[in-house]
Design a protein around this nucleic acid. Structure first.
Lengths: 346, 346
DNA sequence: CAAGGTCCTCAAAGCGCTTTGGGAAACAAC
DNA sequence: GTTGTTTCCCAAAGCGCTTTGAGGACCTTG
């Protein structure tokens, strides 16, 4: 059933039917109702292809994911974030297109999508320092929103970020307040902007307390459980081991706990741990009354929802100033932190 | 840059340029090369909307996800599976469209997508017993592939499933072989087909060994860490507690371990645990030499890849018989299982 | 040289929608 | 009765591609 057939069945012109369906005022309420009824009973939907062609809009947002990101922390966070964006897209009639492309074809994929006119906007995940996608998108002149920011790219663009620096600074400062002086950092991949900022926050807190940073207590990697385990194993084996850890995600935190318990120590008594928790509901810490881990928390799903709103807003109001939002993470007390038991020997 | 402009720039007709680009044989190799070169240098891409309209194909596969599935085990598994499908789609020039819809609008979403001609095929996730989507899709006459199967729907359809029943039967039988007689089952939501089959496997193994199933040792739920924790807490508190667990995913398994350790017991010594592990790389058990948990394993990403291939095959060869593949899970020995220490008192 | 094949190319007709630029009918005002 | 104003509706022109049906140019062959 296409528009022509529907119009014929109603004894109206295509124009009138189209206008009736799209809410234009030049149609009497009587005929509009008649048209809507008929459309419903025939289960008519306008062809997306034809509509794209006629309007020049695709009603689709594209998320381009380089395949190399598969094994990053991306998996879980991605799906949370994307389901947030997807909900909002759907509410506004947009489709979400997800493209997985080899890393070396990533930039071309943006060009292609624009050239094909198959997209109204892009959502950018996991920006790095000096992210090459941002200048490209600016050049292409297509709406986009970044989840995060890119240090080094200083032209204004729309973004939503969590104050990673402040969150980790507060977390670290809290540990210092509990008497910890040797604090291990288990960070995400430091080409990622969020990880860089977290590291800065960690260093700032140490510096403010007059503690010298120690390279042996800092590590960066993939934010998996084994990463946390391996890092904690190594650090706890030092002659001058840490009494606390700041971890960049819940999975390495579980690994840290495994390493701690493997040494017959206990998290929250012998060793303190704070993690940055992306609030993913299927993981521990989800809904218990007293959280297992003290954590800096923020909701990735909410961030996804808001990013989608911003993107839609960019499209609808292209001339408004670009939105930039910095969210603060909450610092939530849980059972994994305690006053330092003993000063490590100097 | 559109086809007309490209043709004008080359001094050729649109027909010839279109044919050259799409590999038709009626074009001399000389002009084809000329056309391809020009297209590349102008960064020309055919408009997807126009092409859809002209060909009647959308070059897109759609994954419709009901919002209620958000908090199921779906999150992590979904993203693994989808990245598998996405890779293959991309290799074959298909886009992946992901729609999140409220549960009560789910079926209508399939109808809509078909009516709009916005999709060439559907991928069906997480089938339930008597899944209403399958008869609908058959009625709509559009290609689809199911990841899993639906007990109760007996018309042939394309599917790929893991032999969940056999995997859990083998796991349970293995525990029985180690001398365990009281074995707890922490299963997924039992309206889901995969969970039903796993339960059957568990019951079959018990029955074969002449062990009477005990309702107090069976639980079904969301496959989160707290689910495992709560279930294990309850069962370990029974007067006649289990000495082993079979869990349906890695997250509840972590919860079980937490409960076990909370009682000053140890997994792999006092209590044995086998889990069904969907092989998600960011979780524990990912890459260590000796796996932490004994597990039945299969790769969701590979399943995604294969499902996508099957779907594309359905589209390209609509008259071939529908493909149905049953994969066996591997049973991998890890450190979480041991001979039962003592018979529970009868 | 005419007839019959090959190659290569093209004009034009859609695909199903939106949107422009009117225009008929009904009504009100003079 | 004529002239404006509304109100409602329509024919037709695209949007950018693919594909049909033909035809010109160039070889072969007899």
């Amino acid at each position: 059933m296409n528009l022509k057939e529907l119009a014929d069945a109603l004894g109206l012109s295509q124009t009138t039917v189209s206008r009736a369906l799209n809410g234009y005022p030049e149609v009497s309420e009587g005929t509009r109702a008649r048209v809507l009824n008929a459309a419903r009973s025939f289960n008519y939907r306008p062809s997306t292809g034809a509509r794209n062609l006629a309007t020049g809009r695709s009603m689709a947002m594209r998320h381009i994911v380089p395949l190399s990101a598969r094994h990053d922390m991306m998996n879980v966070i991605f799906s949370e974030f994307m389901s947030g964006t997807g909900e909002v897209y759907a509410e506004h009639g947009y489709d979400m297109i997800v493209s997985f492309v080899p890393k070396d074809k990533e930039l071309q994929a943006y060009r292609d999508a624009v050239a094909r006119g198959s997209v109204d906007g892009f959502m950018i995940h996991g920006p790095t320092r000096d992210d090459p996608r941002l200048p490209l998108l600016a050049e292409l002149g297509v709406p986009f929103v970044v989840h995060g920011r890119s240090t080094g790219y200083n032209v204004p663009y729309a973004w939503l970020d969590v104050n990673n620096r402040r969150a980790i600074e507060r977390a670290t400062t809290y540990l210092i307040g509990l008497g910890h002086r040797r604090i291990g950092l288990v960070n995400g991949p430091e080409h990622m902007d969020f990880a860089l900022r977290r590291r800065e926050g960690y260093l700032t807190a140490l510096a403010s307390a007059g503690i010298t940073a120690d390279d042996a207590l800092m590590t960066a990697g993939d934010l998996t459980e084994p990463q946390g385990y391996n890092a904690a194993q190594r650090m706890l084996g030092l002659s001058n081991p840490p009494t606390a850890f700041v971890a960049s995600a819940i999975l390495p935190t579980l690994g840290i706990r495994r390493a701690v318990e493997g040494r017959k120590l206990e998290v929250g008594r012998d060793i303190s741990v704070i993690c940055y928790d992306d609030k993913v509901s299927t993981l521990p810490n989800g809904d218990t009354a007293e959280p297992m881990f003290t954590a800096a928390r923020s909701s990735v799903r909410d961030a996804g929802r808001r990013c989608a709103e911003i993107l839609i807003d960019c499209i609808n109001n292209p001339h408004l100033p670009l939105r930039q939002e910095l969210w603060e993470a909450e610092l939530i007390l849980g059972g994994s932190t305690a006053v330092a038991k003993k000063e490590p020997t100097r």
